[in-house]
């Protein structure tokens, strides 16, 4: 018998192929998950993603209701529409999960992230860095003679663009929070 030349992922004719009969288009969705703030809840959510092979592009979590012990997790994930629906259903059935919203589906929403960018540079490059920061409305939160730390808030795309412009100007170090998002309107 010949060896099995089966490429990884080439399961379009197998019993495990769950996707071929539906859209193959990979979409990026932002999910807001309201959870009971108890020990292990984040591990439970992350374990679901790793255990079932879903993607996490960004994840933020913090308590939003101290008295009610509720935390809000914002997850940016990607997958085919069917996978996104499964992610939502799998999250919803977890015992400590109160509510799941697919912000991408449910209407317009705003998403922001915060980044701290340290740029180590000298001379003209420092001036240029300050000028670009002003255009992007980034604040200087720390300064030495050879470095700035900028604070910028915005969409991930805006943060990306700012970082790209900073890189040629010196040694750049970056800390990003990941996306927090909320629906627009009432």
């Amino acid at each position: 018998m010949s060896p099995l030349n089966i490429e990884k992922g080439s399961t379009s004719h197998s019993a495990y192929d769950l996707r071929s009969h539906m859209s193959d288009e990979v979409e990026t969705h932002t999910l807001a998950v309201l959870v009971q703030n108890e020990a292990g809840v984040l591990a439970r959510v992350i374990g679901l993603f790793s255990g079932r092979g879903y993607n996490i592009e960004s994840l933020t979590v913090a308590e939003v209701d101290r008295e009610g012990h509720r935390s809000r997790i914002t997850i940016v994930t990607s997958g085919t529409p069917q996978v996104i629906q499964q992610i939502r259903m799998q999250l919803e059935r977890m015992v400590p999960v109160h509510e799941v919203s697919d912000l991408t589906v449910e209407g317009p929403f705003v998403s922001r992230e915060l980044a701290l960018i340290k740029v180590v540079s000298k001379g003209e490059h420092r001036v240029e860095a300050l000028r670009i920061a002003e255009i992007f409305r980034a604040n200087v939160v720390d300064s030495t003679l050879e470095s700035f730390v900028f604070e910028i808030t915005g969409t991930p795309e805006k943060v990306d663009a700012f970082c790209e412009l900073m890189r040629p100007l010196g040694d750049v170090r970056l800390a990003r929070t990941g996306v927090a998002a909320i629906a627009r309107g009432l």
Binding site: A15, Y16, M89
Partner: peptide
């Protein structure tokens, strides 16, 4: 379950399917 469906693409091709389940994540999973 995969023991039931065999090849998904040819699983009961001409039928409409009802699915009664208490777990919403089971519906449309496969």
């Amino acid at each position: 379950d995969d023991r039931i469906t065999g090849r998904i693409a040819d699983f009961s091709p001409g039928s409409r399917k009802a699915h009664i389940d208490i777990d919403p994540s089971s519906i449309n999973k496969v």
